[in-house]
């Protein structure tokens, strides 16, 4: 079975800094929930941004959904098929109202206003967020913003999800709700998380980014799961 994502030998350095990725490899297969950890500044977010073409690696190849992607135009399709949930929901939610934010993706994909509204209803309904439809995005609470961020990405009907620290600043109840939602979603996903309990609950596979390369972690405590 060919992987959804296949990154090989990725090198990357931010301008004026030491290389952050030194030949990192990553594969994501259908149905997987791949957890990615590593210390602060190890390049986890950078790797997700390279997967969606937001950053261009200095060396290495990105193969996504069966095709090698190089130019900016190649990544338009990747970004639609791989929903990126950003770490800070305030970056993700830029439209005035929740409905507009959720409809933004579908409308960009050329859906009509009615089709987009139907998708908004269906997506909010699936996440039990229907009552948020007409709320002003900047007046939502942190947890609400996070769930709406997920909705905005799911509305584009992606084949894979890339989540950058989705549990940051969430209380236990919202984290629990997020776990339930993620476990029910059919999409393959890459999840960056520093929370061992959260990883334990959702991961089907865990990898660790260290010294710019991807390792399979050796279990160091009872929370670690290498399966």
């Amino acid at each position: 079975m060919s992987p959804l994502f296949d990154l090989a030998g990725i090198h990357y350095a931010y301008p004026g800094h030491r290389p952050i990725l030194n030949g990192a490899d990553l594969q994501l297969f259908t149905g997987e929930r791949l957890c990615l950890n590593g210390h602060n500044g190890a390049g986890k977010s950078t790797l997700l941004q390279i997967m969606t073409g937001l950053l261009k690696p200095s060396a290495g190849s990105v193969t996504a959904f069966g095709r090698e992607r190089k130019a900016e135009a190649d990544f338009t399709e990747v970004r639609r098929r791989a929903g990126f949930v950003f770490q800070d929901p305030d970056d993700q939610l830029f439209c005035p109202t929740v409905a507009e934010d959720v409809a933004f993706g579908p409308l960009n994909l050329g859906k009509s206003k009615d089709e987009a509204m139907a998708i908004v209803e269906a997506t909010l309904d699936m996440l039990n967020l229907t009552s948020f439809r007409d709320r002003i995005t900047h007046k939502l609470s942190g947890g609400e913003k996070r769930l709406v961020s997920l909705a905005t990405v799911l509305a584009m009907e992606p084949d894979a999800l890339l989540l950058d620290e989705p549990t940051t600043a969430l209380d236990e109840r919202t984290t629990e709700r997020l776990v339930e939602i993620l476990l029910e979603l059919p999409q393959a996903m890459v999840v960056i998380s520093h929370d061992p309990h959260f990883r334990h609950k959702i991961a089907t596979r865990t990898i660790r980014l260290e010294d710019g390369a991807v390792h399979r972690p050796a279990p160091t405590c009872k929370h670690a799961k290498t399966a």
């Binding site: 338009t76 970004r79 970056d91 830029f94 005035p96 933004f104 993706g105 960009n108």
Partner: peptide
């Protein structure tokens, strides 16, 4: 810059839709 990235990820083509 992060917002622009988030917008790109959702297929932004220079138009905001107001409903």
């Amino acid at each position: 810059e992060r917002i622009l990235k988030a917008m790109k990820c959702r297929g932004f083509q220079g138009k905001l839709y107001l409903l």
